[in-house]
């Protein structure tokens, strides 16, 4: 199992892609993409990337440039001026910091607790295992949005409204995380290895930390990136519960709320909010692809 190699996605989601299927040479020539495929995929990529380009363009002009006649198609000189205005209207740096704290905390707890539980469900036998795992799987498809009313009541009773903990706690673990790690561990970790450790007299904790965690690392990385992205991009719940100390999404959404919403300033703000995740995507793209496709194992 080569960690960090080109085949990361496959390593990360053995359940789905299976062992890297050796393509025969004959198939390869038949499967080659024609020029039309490149054109269509290129256009699609352009459409998918266009909004970023447009936010750079629109965020770097004055509003009058934008709406008087033909809109500009090339970046203008005003990006930093608009960003400064955006920062004046909302403390985006503080918001970025809060989002970073929340997302990192959620990522850490999700990875740690979901891997532990996933291991228990994958490799241990204990009473109630099937029932408990059944409950976990049954809630996979229930959207958390439906619980926001009681969740708000709980948070205000605990005095956590406008406290970052109110965003961290509900995101700290996910049913998907347990499901994902169970799948990953049951495929990536031979039973013999755990049995051998046991026979050698290793305690269960020792087995978990010296064997399971190191071997499950690719899966944990995928889960962590997905958790980070979900937490970073979440809007509705933080908007309700931490409006006074907003995360980046809430803060950016708030820029437009002034009485003269200024499109170029708003878009300069979205540039600030989006760049960190674009970097994450550029660096961890393969892991993200692996995580998305592993979600489909479910069916």
């Amino acid at each position: 199992m080569s960690t960090g190699s080109v085949d990361d996605v496959r390593t990360a989601a053995p359940a789905l892609t299976g062992a890297p299927e050796p393509r025969t040479r004959k198939r390869r020539s038949e499967d080659a993409a024609g020029p039309l495929t490149y054109v269509v995929l290129g256009l699609t990529a352009a459409v998918f990337l266009f909004p970023f380009y447009y936010s750079l363009v629109a965020g770097s002009h004055s509003p009058s440039d934008l709406y008087d006649g033909t809109p500009p198609l090339l970046p203008g000189p005003q990006l930093f001026e608009n960003m400064r205005l955006a920062l004046e209207q909302a403390d985006l740096f503080a918001a970025l910091g809060r989002s970073l704290v929340v997302s990192l905390a959620v990522t850490a707890t999700t990875i740690f607790f979901c891997t532990l539980a996933g291991f228990a469900f994958a490799k241990c036998s204990f009473r109630g295992r099937n029932a408990l795992f059944g409950i976990t799987v049954a809630t996979l498809t229930i959207p958390p949005t439906l619980s926001i009313i009681p969740l708000y009541v709980v948070m205000s009773r605990l005095g956590l409204v406008n406290n970052l903990l109110s965003v961290i706690l509900p995101g700290a673990v996910t049913a998907f995380g347990v499901f994902f790690m169970r799948q990953y561990i049951s495929q990536a970790l031979p039973d013999e290895l755990i049995e051998a450790a046991r026979v050698d007299g290793a305690s269960m904790n020792r087995t978990v930390f010296s064997i399971v965690f190191p071997l499950a690392r690719p899966g944990m990385a995928v889960l962590g990136i997905l958790a980070f992205m979900a937490s970073w991009n979440d809007f509705l719940w933080p908007f309700i519960v931490v409006r006074q100390s907003p995360t980046i999404q809430v803060a950016v959404a708030g820029i437009g709320a002034g009485y003269t919403p200024d499109i170029s300033v708003i878009l300069a703000g979205t540039v600030i909010a989006t760049v960190p995740l674009l970097l994450v995507t550029a660096v961890f793209g393969k892991q993200i692809v692996g995580g998305i496709t592993a979600g489909a194992v479910k069916g």
Partner: peptide, 25 residues
């Protein structure tokens, strides 16, 4: 690899940013 990663760029973008940009488009 480039095409595959371009597929996830919209997914990785926050809905807040996407909606604001599309709002001006």
């Amino acid at each position: 690899a480039f095409f595959r990663i371009s597929m996830i760029v919209p997914y990785a973008t926050s809905l807040v940013a996407a909606t604001l940009v599309f709002g001006s488009i």
